[in-house]
């Protein structure tokens, strides 16, 4: 069974379509990127999938169950890390926070926090508060928080749009390694064509607003990927050109 199935999804704000008719599936263990021009309705689409926003038309199903409201085994990493972390809790406190309502024992919670923090390389910073960290580190905290939650599906909404180029490359590699070790299914939304090709197993290209899927591209790049060599391969260049052309259309 597919992990995620989106069928005929549409959303309109006050009669104006933001997302018109989107259908796709995500298989378990896949990393799928949705790429589209700025303001095309990507975030609206993601909010509908997360159950934060009821779609106007169509359905979203998470391993076969229709999504109504936020499902219990889904996590979201938002673009604004500084606004999605609790400033009054430490790094470990932030990661642990959503685990409290899942009925886990203290020991289990602690071990999950430690594991998630070591995956993102922040074990040392467990006792710090968000304001003491750089932007890239803060975003790693929110990734750790999502990992510790152990969702079946992790949604990422432009997760690296607010960090500098070097941090961005580091975080991209972090997502690839963490996803390999945690065996996570990831759906990532971005406006950056290169990023989508670099990260994804499959890229869905969205049109201008109202968004529809205009193309699905399989990314047949070998793993593990490397920031320098992967980006220089012919396949990479061919794919990014293809996507750029689709978006321009």
């Amino acid at each position: 069974m597919s992990m995620l199935e989106v069928a005929g999804l549409g959303h309109a704000y006050g009669g104006v379509d933001a997302v018109s008719d989107v259908s796709f599936v995500v298989e378990p263990g896949e990393l799928v990127c949705i790429v589209g021009p700025s303001g095309c309705g990507k975030s609206t689409l993601l909010r509908c999938i997360a159950g934060l926003l009821p779609p106007t038309r169509g359905t979203v199903s998470l391993h076969g169950d229709r999504v109504v409201g936020v499902p219990s085994d889904l996590a979201v990493v938002f673009q604004d890390y500084s606004r999605s972390l609790l400033p009054w809790r430490t790094v470990a406190g932030n990661v642990e926070f959503p685990l409290r309502d899942r009925g886990l024992s203290t020991v289990e919670r602690r071990s999950r926090v430690e594991e998630a923090l070591s995956w993102v390389g922040l074990s040392e910073a467990a006792g710090k508060h968000p304001f003491e960290l750089s932007g890239g580190m803060q975003q790693r905290v929110s990734i750790a928080r999502a990992l510790a939650y152990r969702p079946a599906l992790m949604l990422m909404d432009e997760p690296f749009a607010s960090v500098d180029a070097q941090t961005r490359a580091d975080l991209e590699d972090l997502v690839l390694t963490v996803r390999a070790s945690a065996g996570m299914t990831v759906l990532l939304v971005t406006h950056d064509i290169d990023e989508s090709v670099y990260l994804a197993d499959r890229v869905l290209v969205l049109s201008q607003s109202p968004a529809t899927v205009v193309e699905t591209l399989k990314v047949d790049l070998s793993s593990p990927r490397d920031q320098i060599t992967t980006r220089g391969t012919d396949t990479f260049v061919r794919l990014r050109t293809e996507i750029a052309r689709q978006i321009r259309r």
């Binding site: 909010r47 606004r83 999605s84 926070f97």
Partner: peptide, 9 residues
């Protein structure tokens, strides 16, 4: 964004 985060979790 924090409110959305709380809902997601």
């Amino acid at each position: 964004v924090l409110a959305d985060t709380a809902r997601v979790f």
